[in-house]
Design a protein around this nucleic acid. Structure first.
Length: 271
DNA sequence: CCGTTGCCCTGCCAGC
DNA sequence: TGCTGGCAGGGCAACG
């Protein structure tokens, strides 16, 4: 569930709390969560590393380490990355605990265990397959039009494809399409040019607004301090099947399945 | 290369 | 009331 705005919020919180700290030890309770390069032990390799920076790429939170290595965390659906004093209670299903020199703990928890903390070597191109950042200057109208043109993939499936655009998940794909009044199943190349431009704009807008609200907390998401976001109160379509469309007021939001994902939209507004 | 499907995993809940 | 089958979904592998 954590998508670009949620990971961005987590990363900003981590930047305040952990940059400059040394990791004295790593406690790995569920081995498959903590992945290291071949022949390296995650816990041994990370002990003694200094955290020199924190950043986001797509839906990944990245701790940059003094050695040049990076700790790349993917939260998938139910992952949490929370910093707290050692005495604070843990979230359920805490699988990895990093002991920070100031006595704090950076904890990774994940009930469904889909998430990963991956230690990657200096210079390793782990993000080679990731697409453009939608909030970067590279996400130009031309780049977006080029991405959609000539493709038969439903536009929603394209928005979810991390190799093309990095960071959009199901919630913000539904919201951006609703806002741009575009039917999620429309083949990407069939969008008119004005529709493409509109969609680019609503993608940027909805992501920015969600960041301002510190993300969407529906089931599991919390920020680096363990606090919920606020954008769940601003959703227009996601999860709202059966309720009237807040724009047209006459049609009820429907839920269909597209690209094996629940898809919420308004049959009247989105064409 | 392109697009689609299934799998991983556990908590939740509608429906019996 | 208690059980259960289906659903939630990001990323990856496999397939045609």
């Amino acid at each position: 569930m954590p998508e670009l705005p949620e990971v961005e919020t987590i990363v900003r919180g981590l930047a305040r709390a952990v940059v400059g700290q040394t990791i004295d030890a790593a406690e790995v309770r569920l081995a498959r969560i903590a992945v290291a390069p071949p022949n390296l032990s995650f816990a041994r390799a990370i002990a003694g590393e200094r955290i020199v920076g924190v950043r986001r790429r797509g839906k990944y939170a990245i701790l940059e380490l003094g050695s040049g290595r990076s700790l790349v965390t993917s939260l998938r659906m139910t992952g949490r990355l929370v910093v707290a004093d050692a005495g604070r209670p843990e979230w359920p299903a805490t699988h990895v605990v990093l002991h920070l020199r100031d006595g704090g703990r950076l904890r990774f928890s994940d009930v469904r265990t889909f998430g990963r903390m991956r230690l990657v070597g200096a210079g390793e191109a782990w993000d080679r397959e990731l697409g453009i950042e939608p909030l970067s200057s590279g996400f130009t109208p031309e780049a977006f039009i080029g991405m959609l043109s000539g493709r038969t993939t439903p536009v929603k499936a394209l928005l979810l494809d991390q190799r093309r655009i990095a960071g959009i998940g199901n919630i913000y794909a539904c919201e951006a399409l609703w806002e741009a009044r575009i039917r999620p199943s429309l083949p990407s190349g069939r969008l008119t040019k004005p529709a493409m431009l509109r969609l680019r704009r609503t993608i940027i807008d909805v992501l920015q607004r969600a960041i301002e609200m510190r993300g969407t907390s529906i089931d599991d998401y919390v920020d680096a301090d363990g606090l919920q976001g606020g954008f769940q109160n601003s959703l227009s379509v996601y999860g709202r099947d059966g309720r009237p469309c807040v724009r047209c007021g006459t049609s009820r939001i429907v839920r269909t399945v597209l690209a094996a994902r629940g898809t919420w939209w308004c049959r009247r507004c989105q064409r």
